[in-house]
């Protein structure tokens, strides 16, 4: 499954405060590769992730996931694409309060229409793989920031999504944990052949990525370039 953004334009805000965040952005992301989106805060990394992840409908342009234009889909159809094909790891606020680590994954499986009981073993394996196997029955409030991030990554990987979107995965973890997380993201991407896009400020993440995409180049904010195609 491939992802392609074609002439995507997004403006946020209203009235005088309305700002064009993405302006005619074109980008192509191939299966089995990790692409690091880099750029300063406010450069549109999260907005690009939102558009690619069917969270936000662009004002103009196409978002083609395996040839299907997400921008043309209705609200319920985009929700369906999200639960069936996309895995997210957000920068913060990733977990449902009151639920244990393993329940976070089973709840996501339930939303996707899968039988949670059948995925319990896989969920525990993934949580062990991200280093929180000893915290399976701890509730979200009992986990540290780094542990919460890792649970969120396990949840994103649980259903082997075609598109994995990760927002600042190493922002709340120490260097050794950051390494573990990025390696896991890369390994899972290569193993399952999913399209992975990571918004990051962390050079270590960029180094692990197969491709590096500068938001300044995409939006033309710094160089005037408006197009960046990935092989």
């Amino acid at each position: 499954m491939s992802l392609e953004l074609s002439d995507v334009t997004v403006a946020l805000g209203s009235g005088d405060a309305r700002t064009t965040v993405l302006d005619g952005v074109c980008a192509r992301f191939s299966p089995g590769t990790v692409t690091a989106l880099v750029g300063p805060s406010g450069s549109g990394k999260s907005t690009l992730l939102a558009v690619a992840g069917a969270l936000l409908r662009p004002d103009d342009g196409q978002v083609l996931l395996d040839g299907r234009d997400l921008a043309a889909l209705g609200d319920s159809q985009r929700a369906r694409v999200r639960r069936e094909h996309i895995g997210y790891m957000f920068q913060s606020g990733n977990l449902l309060s009151g639920l244990t680590a393993v329940e976070q994954l089973l709840a996501a499986a339930s939303i996707a229409g899968r039988r949670p009981r059948r995925l319990r073993h896989r969920a525990e394996e993934l949580l062990a793989a991200v280093g929180v196997g000893h915290r399976l029955t701890h509730r979200a409030e009992q986990l540290s920031g780094g542990e919460r991030q890792r649970v969120a990554l396990a949840r994103a990987l649980l259903l082997a999504p075609a598109l994995l979107l990760v927002d600042e995965p190493t922002a709340a973890v120490d260097r050794s944990q950051a390494g573990t997380l990025t390696e896991l993201i890369a390994a899972s991407t290569h193993e399952h052949g999913c399209v992975t896009v990571v918004a990051t400020h962390d050079p270590a993440v960029s180094e692990v990525a197969d491709h590096r995409l500068d938001m300044a180049a995409l939006t033309g904010a710094a160089t005037g370039a408006r197009r960046a195609d990935q092989p």
């Binding site: 929700a79 999200r82 639960r83 957000f90 606020g93 996501a108 939303i111």
Partner: peptide, 17 residues
Amino acid sequence: RQPELALLRALGASRRR
């Protein structure tokens, strides 16, 4: 629980659900 509802929506839960 607005934050939780937003997360569930982001994970693909429909409004009807």
